[in-house]
């Protein structure tokens, strides 16, 4: 066994030292909430396939205060995901050239937010119509 014990610099918590990286870790961690919601929906498919009693049990569980609080947290996290998703758009999409001029990054970001709100409103109206 080696007698040398070289110094290893600890990298844990590196992101806490810079607000830029704190925000980075926060927006990356929204993925945990998106994953949680995918699991909530998947449990829904399991209960729906299992029949009426199981589905009613699922609905009851969704009504519990704990579930409501959990979904409020999910909502906040996923809204933040949507906000940052479009905020980073100018960095992640290829440049859009309109009439020989590059589209302003600010316009791309705001366009994304407007489309997101529009999709939410239209979706709600469709669900309202179905219900």
């Amino acid at each position: 066994m080696s007698k040398r014990r070289p110094y290893v610099r600890s990298k844990s918590g590196w992101w806490k030292k810079d607000p830029y990286y704190v925000e980075y870790m926060v927006h990356e961690s929204t993925a945990l909430f998106v994953a949680a919601y995918a699991i909530v929906l998947t449990i829904g498919t399991v209960c729906l396939a299992a029949g009426e009693a199981a589905w009613n049990g699922y609905l009851e569980a969704m009504k519990s205060p704990l579930s409501i609080i959990f979904h409020l947290i999910l909502l906040a996290a996923i809204v933040y995901h949507a906000f940052t998703w479009f905020k980073l758009f100018p960095l992640t999409t290829p440049p859009v050239v309109l009439g020989g001029k590059k589209l302003e990054p600010e316009l791309i970001v705001r366009g994304g937010w407007v489309v997101a709100v529009g999709v939410a409103v239209v979706s709600f109206v469709i669900v309202w119509g179905l219900a």
Binding site: V34, G44, I68, H71, L75, A82, W85, A120, F124
Partner: peptide
């Protein structure tokens, strides 16, 4: 998935997890 979550995620969570249950 990021695009779908950004566009539909908030309204889906609101409908299935908040609006309908309460």
């Amino acid at each position: 998935g990021g695009m779908m979550a950004a566009l539909f995620g908030p309204i889906m969570v609101f409908i299935t997890g908040i609006a309908v249950p309460i």
